[in-house]
Design a binder for these strands. Structure first.
Lengths: 210, 210, 210, 210
DNA sequence: CATGAATGAGGGTTCATTCAT
DNA sequence: CATGAATGAACCCTCATTCAT
């Protein structure tokens, strides 16, 4: 009926966007091809003329999510490594809290994918990229001198990711009222405090933040 | 074949145990009522005479998992709070790594439950109990003097839980080869180091462990 | 609605019978599970509670067809081998011609099964049993003396099967008006004549080829 | 990519050839229009601009197959009718066995076409032509004197076709290891022996039946 | 309480065919 | 004529859940 003829690239974008929104709202299992089609405004087979299977579509969506998240991470304007780490951490917190942004919720829903379809594994693999991103920043900071030379870039990177996961899981399980911004920031202080060159470094509540 | 007439309580236990094993192996969606029945050795409607719906059964299983995990936590023989925290942390790491133990894997599969069925929320709620357990130990430690008086019991508790989650997610996404015992232990060092009363307290790699 | 509760064995019989009739009428591809269910008077999933897949159901049907055909073959009352062969041959002809009997038509539709599903192969394998049946009869005849000692039981058996196939294919392709009973009987004469002990009538191996 | 503008006749040829190969490999149902288009290197609607429907295309392919097979039959150089029959028979055997030749395999896959679409009927009709071809050769042999005057050309023709079918079906059902060249040749001997003028070798019509 | 047999709702996927360009 | 994008109609199969016994 409607049958708006769209260029493939555009349609693919629409489809992935719809999938993203649905995954965020209904989880991976709740995201049926029928629902995607309906949301896009086409019939089900139209979806299949752009993606070979639901699995491929989900993988594409997962990749899109990661690309966007990494883009957010990489756009930090700060030159100082420590400041960049802090800002990226804060951005993630903001993303999770945002009502409009389905990026992070969707991302974590992928853990819910049926095991054995490779979605979780892709999720893991792409998280390793995030770890590397962080580690690079830390290493850069060590070169700059803004991070202590004894720091272990990978370990710090993992702690940052660990903090992300904590925020995500807390959000997903509906207890973000308890693990709130306040606590999240304090964890950030702990991590960054452990690699800041300064003097008194027990990165407790009072310290660290202005 | 002709199934013996077991006391209800025992049957319920069997059913929940079977569910637990299946969730660990196949995920929540992969755990069908038929499979549960088969594993227990009864027919499907028999399951329904014990649990009103799959959802209820899953909730019961989730509770069982938590009870067992808390039992493990509470059975630590150490009197010293700091030592208890460390041991509990180590036990969790061991649990995640264990091939035989389906407790932790199952636990985290519950995140994969379809949103809106209340399973995730229960998961969150029960995690809050874990937080409280940890916070109690920390408070006890502060009373004992084995933990510094400036410590914030809740925050420390959350960091411990955060570490659990990190281990779980890493395991689930198949990257536990990268976030390994070594890193996990260092994170434990960082957390405990931040509340240990000692002198030099930059809880880095060298420190903290024998 | 209807939901007549039937014992499994009976239902399975119904299902296979329905499948048999449908295969005969619509071919293997045209025999959908939905049509089978409708014909039996149950819903589609009911079919699946009796047979694990369409393929299994088709195999069961194929086997049923063969069992029945072999039963027909084996029920010949004649003691004389030659007479038995002739009667079996005539029975097959009658079966093919019969409007009511869907046995042979169904049988041959199985050749139309999608290649690679193993149905054709099963068809072949079970035809080998027919060959063996025939060969046994021929060998018996040789012992009796009603068939010449130079006969090759296997070769004769194959010729009988070849004749069946000819009837079947002619029927399937709608040219049984041309390859009719008359011709079919003459082919039977040729085959049996070549092994009858009578006077000089033997176009065997030695002859004919250089 | 950008497909050259080929003359219609040539395109049609390409399409039919592709269909032939696909039918031989995947069966009639497995031969999708999309696959044909892909193999030819054009888009799906391009196919439809040459053939009104899949059915028409299949009919054209079926005709092509028959034309080629008859061409093979008619190209026998022998003048002697008996020798021609033998050679044609041998050629068919070779064709069936050949890995490269998709002619005969494709031909027989058409039996698998959904009944009621007229494909099988065409298959039958065209087989009648083969019968006539054979009958003509036999009649010619009778005029030549190389075939006995009592022979029934049509009956002999049918026996030859029957032998083809046997080879085809055996091949299709994967039991060509049992019905092999040896047996096939012996059947040819039986057929030709029954019409060869030589000495005493005639299991003909008159005999055998009461 | 337990069983055997059934159902309703829906899931992913495929395919011949047709528009609009 | 050829193309890119879309559709309608099926198809096989699965699952939580419920009767009748």
């Amino acid at each position: 009926m409607a049958q708006e003829h769209l260029p493939a690239e555009e349609r693919r974008q629409q489809i992935v966007d719809a999938t993203l929104a649905l995954v965020a709202g209904y989880g991976v299992e709740g995201t049926t091809v029928a629902r995607i089609a309906e949301r896009v405004g086409v019939t089900v087979p139209a979806i299949y003329s752009h993606y070979a299977s639901k699995r491929e579509l989900l993988l594409a969506t997962l990749d899109l999510v990661f690309d966007r998240i990494r883009a957010v991470h990489q756009s930090s304007p700060h030159a100082d490594a420590l400041a960049r780490l802090r800002e990226i951490g804060e951005r993630h917190t903001a993303m999770v809290a945002s009502k409009n942004d389905s990026l992070v919720p969707a991302l974590f829903e992928f853990i819910a994918a049926p095991p054995g379809e490779g979605l979780r594994e892709r999720l893991g693999a792409r998280h390793l990229e995030l770890v590397r991103d962080y580690a690079d920043i830390v290493a850069e900071g060590m070169r700059q001198g803004s991070i202590i030379p004894e720091a272990d870039p990978e370990q710090v990177a993992w702690l940052m990711v660990s903090r992300h996961w904590t925020e995500d899981v807390a959000h997903l399980t509906g207890i973000s009222g308890h693990w709130d911004r306040e606590r999240s920031m304090r964890m950030l202080d702990l991590i960054l405090g452990s690699i800041a060159p300064d003097t008194a470094r027990r990165p407790t509540t009072e310290a660290g933040r202005p």
